[in-house]
Design a protein around this nucleic acid. Structure first.
Length: 227
DNA sequence: CCAGACGTTGTT
DNA sequence: GTCTGG
DNA sequence: CCAGACGTTGTT
DNA sequence: GTCTGG
């Protein structure tokens, strides 16, 4: 699955080039090594007015939810059932997005029960878009925009670590995924299920500092042993 | 028709 | 064990 | 995802 | 929003 990720690099130009979008001039962010559920993430969204990058809270609250607490648990959505689940299908049809990242974490369970965190990133260190969906929930204080990250079966690189991974889209699939006029579930799911080329990624064990959601420093992504 | 419920993942 | 918060 | 909390009554 | 039950 995907319960933590990073956005450590990426200046304005990187983001604008990677996702072919213009950033609002006032938009600022700091390097994030340990992004956890309930925190703010950057989402590439698209509607009739065009493509934008906007913040979203990670943890999807369905529009009809009476209790927003539900969002603390809806952090991932399975690609295989995305268009069927009542909590997700409306967002899947009309509110797809890309979650901007440059790495993510998976925990490997060892035979003795210990869990070892691994960091996965592109070999070239570049940005990538994880498939996501988003929702808007009306709180008494105003609209709350939330999102979930779509997951798929692990590819060959990740399979030894964990059975699921985020759906990483190749850049040539970004347009089709984001296009709001595209609503054919079968086509969209097949985009998600295209395995991301394992040879473009690398994966190495990291220290347990990432376990603490409160810790957000470079220690999280440092290789435990040279990889 | 209206009222009322409705959630997910991954793990073992 | 289970739930909440980050 | 992981870490950390998790209780009640009655009284002031 | 959408589905189920009455």
């Amino acid at each position: 699955m995907c319960g933590r990720f990073s956005l450590t690099r990426g200046d304005r130009d990187d983001l604008e080039n990677a996702f072919r979008v213009r950033l609002p001039s006032g938009m600022a962010w700091r390097p994030r090594y340990n992004i956890a559920p309930t925190q703010e993430v950057l989402a590439v969204v698209e509607d009739e007015r065009g493509r934008r990058i906007e913040p979203r809270r990670w943890g999807l609250i369905p529009s009809w939810a009476s209790d927003p607490q539900i969002g603390n648990r809806l952090i991932n959505a399975r690609a295989e059932t995305l268009f069927e689940r009542p909590a997700f299908r409306e967002a899947a049809r009309r509110r797809r997005c890309l979650i901007v990242a440059d790495g993510f974490y998976e925990w490997q369970r060892r035979p003795d029960g210990r869990k070892v965190p691994f960091y996965i990133r592109r070999r070239d260190g570049g940005l990538f878009g994880m498939a996501g969906i988003w929702e808007e929930w009306q709180s008494p204080e105003g609209p709350v925009r939330t999102c979930a990250i779509v997951t798929v079966e692990a590819n060959d690189l990740l399979a030894p670590i964990h059975p699921r991974m985020p759906a990483i889209l190749s850049p040539r699939r970004y347009d089709a995924w984001l296009d709001p006029r595209n609503a054919r579930a079968a086509d969209l799911v097949s985009l998600l299920l295209e395995p991301y080329p394992p040879e473009e990624l690398e994966c190495y064990p990291v220290s347990r500092s990432v376990n603490r959601a409160e810790y957000d420093g470079p220690e999280c992504v440092r290789p435990l042993r040279p990889s």
